[in-house]
């Protein structure tokens, strides 16, 4: 119980997005679409150098316009280097290519493969960076509000999503609670791997069941408060699109296109 709560707290702190920056003030929907657009542009880059320069765009924005400290950035993004390495490796070792550099068992490293691997590995890192830039500067409530106001996403889905995000940390607590209940009721833990697997099953099903029950209760409570799931409602947090969004659009499009066309 307490460890769950503790984690919950840490999680909240870790997730507190930096919204007082230029990027933080961009409309979340606009930001989302711009980042997706940049990702599409990245697909057009065919060599690792261009991709590396394109990757620099979100990194620099993160550190300057988004006011994310370098340390936070490194801590949050470095785990994904594993992904970069594995992607690069897979294509280098098993990719198409003529110029063989090294061969061993089923591994066949080629120059073209490595080139492709680096390109796609860097592209993946760029995807990660755009994702991080987004989550690190966006408040979830605002995102959902803007999805409803700018993108006309159905409130049924939007509020369900909001509740889903709200509950995630709570489910850790719920998990601890189920474990505590099993302990109190005297369900003995079986040591070893078999016990672990048994434990996972024994806790997962109740956790999912609790999740379903929780979802139903919230649905009941919201509907009982006059929520009808249509866009026929007003919004306390008015999300707008303005000059800042245009600037951000210009910045991303110009830099990305410049790199793609000039390099």
């Amino acid at each position: 119980m307490s460890t769950g709560a503790a984690k919950l707290h840490r999680r909240r702190e870790a997730c507190m997005p930096e919204t007082n920056s230029f990027v933080g003030g961009v409309n979340p929907s606009v930001k989302l679409f711009l980042h997706l657009l940049c990702m599409i542009l990245l697909v057009f880059s065919r060599d690792p150098w261009t991709t590396l320069v394109l990757l620099a765009v979100p990194v620099i924005i993160t550190l300057t316009l988004a006011k994310i400290p370098l340390k936070t950035f490194i801590v949050r993004v470095s785990p994904f280097l594993v992904l970069f390495l594995s992607t690069t490796w897979v294509l280098a070792a098993y990719g198409k290519g003529e110029t063989v550099w090294w061969e061993w068992a089923w591994i066949r490293i080629t120059a073209e493969g490595l080139q492709n691997g680096l390109n796609i590995g860097l592209r993946m890192m760029a995807f990660v960076c755009y994702g991080f830039l987004f989550t690190a500067t966006t408040d979830v409530t605002k995102l959902v509000m803007s999805l409803m106001q700018q993108c006309k996403v159905s409130p049924k889905f939007a509020y369900a999503l909001l509740a889903g995000f709200r509950f995630l940390p709570l489910f850790k607590e719920e998990y601890a609670q189920i474990k505590a209940a099993h302990r109190v009721r005297g369900v003995a833990r079986v040591p070893g791997l078999r016990g672990k697997i048994q434990g996972v099953m024994r806790y997962t099903i109740p956790l999912l069941a609790q999740g379903i029950r929780k979802a139903e209760r919230v649905a009941v409570a919201l509907e009982a408060r006059g929520f009808d799931g249509t866009l026929n409602r007003t919004f306390y947090h008015q999300m707008t699109v303005g000059r800042r969004d245009a600037l951000y659009l210009a910045l991303l499009v110009v830099t990305n296109l410049a790199v793609l066309l000039l390099l």
Binding site: K156, F157, A160, L161, G164, L208, K214, A215, E216, G229
Partner: peptide
């Protein structure tokens, strides 16, 4: 209906949680 959407979303978000745990395993 809303209840079904809510259930679907929460179940899915719980699954998303498990997905993250899976990802490094896949890469390696």
């Amino acid at each position: 209906n809303f209840r079904e959407i809510m259930m679907t979303v929460i179940l899915a978000v719980l699954c998303g949680f498990i997905y993250i745990a899976w990802a490094p395993l896949y890469g390696v």
